[in-house]
Amino acid sequence: MTSGASRRIRDMLIASILDGELLPGQRIRQEALAEEYGVSRVPVREALHMLEREGLVTLVQNTGAWVTALTQDECIEIYEIRERVEPLLLRNSMQNLDDSVFDRLEELNAQMIAARDSPNEFMRLDWEFHWLTYSGAEPSFLLSMVKRLWNVTQAYRREFVQHQDGTAQHLTHSEHLLIIESLRRLDSADAGEAIASHIRRTRKSLVTRPEIFDLDGSASSLEH
């Protein structure tokens, strides 16, 4: 049975990874976490195993734990998978969305436009936007898989967003509007193509941006 301490440690590490405080390849030292939280290493190990299942941490038996890192090819492959499966997830979700959700999506898109000079705020809003579109989907293997694919690429999305120019930002907001409009019409074909095209554009951009994958936390470890 998972303890409350394990969940607290898991939540802290998720926030640190998704906010970019811990970089891909950075080691997470169990003894440092146990000391910080005043617990044994058991709940720390439980938390790390939960994060491994979510794609955020890589565990190597008898060696340790690291923030999951990807190569450029691996990240592009993940985007190819997302391009194919997220239209299905959106279709499963859209029948359970209502006007209040669509209105919130429009608010979020407007807030992203205002946050164009604040990458971290943009990332937070973008995450909320897309996961709100999927919020009508029932718990499923597909939903869990997509969440894992998002988790493992978060650091690289942040780096990508930080270097977007005005044209790319404008395209992002326009694509979001297309998604919202097709959801309001309950048009699963158009909604599926809108999200696939949105993901596809980023995937093609990643091909030309190998420097994004120079992120390296291997020289650092989680010490307190």
Rank of each mutant, 00 (worst) to 15 (best):
D187S: 08
L125T: 10
G25M: 06
W131F: 12
E175V: 05
D216H: 05
V161F: 15
A5M: 00
I9N: 03
L89Y: 08
A65I: 05
L171W: 08
S118K: 07
E159S: 14
L206D: 07
S6W: 01
Q164M: 10
L22V: 02
S40R: 03
H170E: 08
R45Y: 01
H198V: 04
E128N: 11
E77N: 12
I179Q: 09
N120G: 08
A194I: 04
Y37T: 01
R116E: 07
D19R: 04
H130K: 15
V85W: 06
W66S: 07
L51Q: 01
I113C: 12
D73V: 12
S218W: 04
G192P: 06
E175K: 07
F160H: 15
S40L: 00
V207G: 05
L222E: 07
R82H: 06
P43H: 03
E46G: 07
G136D: 06
L89W: 08
D103K: 14
W131K: 14
L70F: 14
L59A: 12
T68A: 10
L222M: 06
H176I: 04
L89R: 11
A219T: 02
L48Y: 08
L18V: 05
T133K: 12
L108M: 09
L56D: 00
D98I: 03
G217E: 03
L183Y: 14
E54C: 00
S197Q: 12
V152Y: 02
P87V: 01
L178N: 13
E86M: 11
S93G: 05
E86H: 10
I9G: 06
T167E: 09
R200E: 06
H49K: 12
R41P: 00
V161P: 15
V161N: 15
E36Q: 07
G136Q: 06
F102V: 04
N109T: 15
T63K: 08
I81Q: 07
A155P: 13
G136M: 06
T58A: 11
R158Y: 14
V152S: 05
S40G: 07
G192I: 09
L33M: 11
E193Y: 09
M94S: 02
R41C: 01
V146S: 10
Q164T: 03
V57N: 10
W127G: 10
G55S: 03
Q61M: 01
N92E: 06
E175T: 06
L143F: 15
I195P: 10
F102R: 11
G192L: 12
L48I: 08
L171C: 03
L178G: 14
N151D: 09
R104T: 02
I17W: 04
